[in-house]
Amino acid sequence: MQIHIHAQDGVPIYLQIVQQIKYLVASGRLQPGEELPSIRVLAEQLLVNPNTIARAYRELETAGVVEKRRTAGTFIAESGSPLARKERLKLLNERVDQLLVEASQMGFELNEVLKLIQQREHVLRQPKKEERNHE
């Protein structure tokens, strides 16, 4: 499990862990039923206070992303996938909001933005095809 902590970010560390685990679940890199490292192991790996990890795990548990099994440890919840879609939507929403705000500040209409999105998508596809050809 790859988690990166940026202490200089300003974002509380437990939140960084929560978000990154949610992202890992959303992108399918953590599968339902997979076991998370114990608090102590993750704390030593990330060099973070164990209490912080415990708080992140608690937060994830209340959000239903992980579940604690009494003796075994902490696992990704089986009902992970619907939430994953919700998470993905939420992530995308944030980006779209930001785009729309900036577009309106710079004086673009919604139609123009939509057109631009389609154009960019077209452009982005071209080089990918080329890359495949090269291979």
Binding site: I5, A7, Q8, R40, A43, E44, L47, N49
Partner: peptide
């Protein structure tokens, strides 16, 4: 990680403090 033990540390590397 062991129950009940305490650490006092001084540092001017604040990201270390923030982590721990």
């Amino acid at each position: 990680a062991d129950e009940g033990r305490t650490v006092i540390f001084s540092s001017h590397l604040l990201d270390e403090v923030e982590r721990l």
